[in-house]
Amino acid sequence: MGCLAVQVTKFEDGVTAVGVQIAHCLADAISLSRFVHDWSATHQSLITNTPVPELSPIFEPWLLNQRAAKSADDVVPDESVLKIAYELPLHRYDWWASGEESGFGPGAHKIPEVLKDEPRALELARDAEKMPWDTYDVQAPVSHTIIHYTSKELERLWSAAATSPDIYGSAKAGISRHDALVAHIWTLVNRARGPENGDVDSEVHCDVTIGLRTRVSPPLPASFLGSPLQIINTALPWSVASSSPALSRIAVSINATLSRFTPAAVGAQIYAIAHELAPQRLWQAFLGRKHLIVTSWAHTRLYDCDFGTGETPRYVHPIMPLVDGCLQIMEARPKNGKMPGGRWYDDGVDVAIYLEKEAMNRLVQDKRIWR
């Protein structure tokens, strides 16, 4: 089975659609966008009879391993390093130990034959927890919508998050437009879902995907291919995370979670992963009523691609699976066809949301979408 698939569809009116699909374990959005940029630049040179660009992708996964806090070859892992990793704000859901409630049927959570007699495989992984399947109906119908925010609307959201009076003081100075937008959408989602069993103090989770290229020391090259990601967890009571007046507190909490993933902390996490019996058994995120997974395609500049026609894409549509609780953010289509050289949100932002159908119906009717 191939890891990459490309489909080119030409319509009767002359419009061409280019679709690309790639295995996520091999490529994140940055790698996928680099592939499309390199492909379009090469194709453009062939069409226009200009020199073919010199491409420089780097697929060397071991470069990430070298950023571990200590050698992954240690026979006995260093407890002081593991402690740093295990204190980071991220989920450690054990897939193998959570099978009986999942509803995926026998065998879905089966321990690989090569590990079935390993004592550590028969119990919960260290510091792990069972998946909260009672909060996620995998059979529930899911809807999808896209909300567009202009740069002015985003500025208004950021201003509300960064200037609202609260106890955080200077902590708000570090809030980004991205933090404010995620915080705002999270409040919409939580209101649309309502509190679990009516418990307004029940904890809900915003699981943000972060890239590690610039979060390790030394940083990985921008051309590094792969999927160097972690999913980190900001947890708040539903009563807070559903409140528009609490936007500043929510944004500060998200930003504070992000700030904990320093090069030293990420190095410890890479070291801890290397010493797991099977890292793939551990999920750093979940779906359903209490979780929202956030993935950002900001800075991919896919609207700059030109395959040699002199035209840039009319629309770029990242396709996510229809699951209850996924949020995807990216630059909107430039007004003049070419992306500006300034901020990633200068032409607005497109926010794709995937949510259980009834909750989605409530969300799109929420008049506070644009505050």
Rank of each mutant, 00 (worst) to 15 (best):
A140G: 06
L115W: 09
V323E: 13
Q280W: 08
R301L: 13
P279A: 14
I58H: 03
V6M: 12
L4G: 12
R34E: 06
R371D: 12
R371A: 10
V294Y: 11
V189R: 03
V142I: 09
T150V: 01
A161P: 06
S151D: 15
W283E: 07
L63K: 06
P165G: 02
E129V: 11
E196V: 15
L212T: 09
W344F: 14
L287E: 07
Y354G: 00
K70P: 01
L327F: 07
V204F: 13
L220A: 12
E101L: 11
G267A: 09
S98T: 08
S227W: 05
D346S: 13
L236R: 08
D28A: 01
L236N: 10
I147A: 00
S71A: 01
G105C: 03
V75P: 02
I369R: 06
R281T: 14
R120C: 09
G105T: 02
S56K: 07
Q7I: 05
L355R: 00
G267Y: 09
K357E: 15
A72K: 11
H148E: 14
S248A: 02
A41S: 14
E87R: 06
T234P: 07
W62S: 09
I175D: 11
F224Q: 13
A161V: 09
I22K: 01
L277W: 12
G226P: 14
F104S: 03
R281W: 12
P132K: 04
P228R: 00
N336Q: 14
Q139I: 03
S170E: 15
S143D: 15
D350M: 00
K357L: 02
F224T: 08
R343Q: 13
E101D: 15
R260L: 14
V52K: 04
K338R: 15
E100H: 05
S253P: 05
T50K: 11
L355G: 02
V75A: 13
T135H: 04
T309N: 12
P340Y: 03
R177F: 08
R260I: 02
E118R: 00
H37P: 00
E311N: 14
T300R: 11
Q284R: 04
R191W: 04
H43M: 13
I167T: 08
T312P: 02
T135L: 14
K70Y: 01
R333S: 10
I270A: 11
S80Q: 11
V240L: 15
K130W: 01
P313K: 05
W158F: 10
R191V: 01
T135G: 00
S56H: 06
K367M: 13
P61V: 00
V142D: 10
P237K: 02
E123M: 09
P132I: 07
G174Q: 10
L322M: 13
H317S: 10
R92N: 07
A235Q: 14
W96V: 07
W95N: 11
V204G: 12
A180L: 08
E311I: 03
I353T: 01
